[in-house]
Amino acid sequence: MAWTWFHRLASPPHLYAFAARATPWLGWPATLLILGGLYGGLVLAPPDYQQGDDFRIIYVHAPSAWMSLMVYVTMASAAAIALIWRMKVAHAVAASCAPIGASFTLAALVTGSLWGRKMWGTYWEWDPRLTSELILLFLYIGYMALRSAIEELQRADRASALLAIVGVVNVPIIHYSVIWWNSLHQAPSVMKLAKPAMPASMLAPLLMMLAGFTLLFGALLLVRVRAEVLRRERSAGWIRAALAG
């Protein structure tokens, strides 16, 4: 049962139709969660007792940083599935992830830098967390550059998939950098097993933003995958069906 569902998604026409139907179911909840999270974060949450209102940067910084990692893991997983099972649509999924991930990695770096200016007294420091996040941005950019440098699609798919998979070692380095090394960056305050180090009025908007960004990624990915699948398709029959829908 589960496998027939999986195989149907692996077929481009089914994936295209499924993505078209599923997009609003992710896009609208994402919009509502982000709007709610913004209101909660900017208006309802009290100022931090140490950081004042500067801490509100967390509501855009943490979701962006979360996106940068989640998108990379999705991209590398799709690349691995594509290489192992020779599944073409998985290459389309991996290729669709890169621009989304790159842009949110940039957001995470810049918002972190703005937050660091007052809290650490510097916009930038060659700190383990900051440096490994910057390497993540370079991985995304390298992935996109590699794809656009190789003319033949199949070779571009395979080469970029390898790069994505090798680069995944950077993900645990980013996550654990604040624990392994003596970093300026604070340790996780939400994603830990014990109770989060935040009152509910501060935590709720953050969770809404994290959920909203995650759903937004889903919606963006579905739209991009449709574009990528359509671009790769040569069979006239289903292109006609896709364009009609």
């Binding site: 913004l38 509100r56 855009v60 957001a107 937050w115 963006l220």
Partner: peptide, 23 residues
């Protein structure tokens, strides 16, 4: 923003711009 306007608002503006640009 308690004196942090120059840091809070650009952060929100950039992130929301990136969200909208992605769409």
């Amino acid at each position: 923003m308690g004196g942090y306007a120059a840091f809070v608002w650009p952060s929100y503006a950039l992130t929301l711009a990136i969200v909208l640009l992605n769409v």
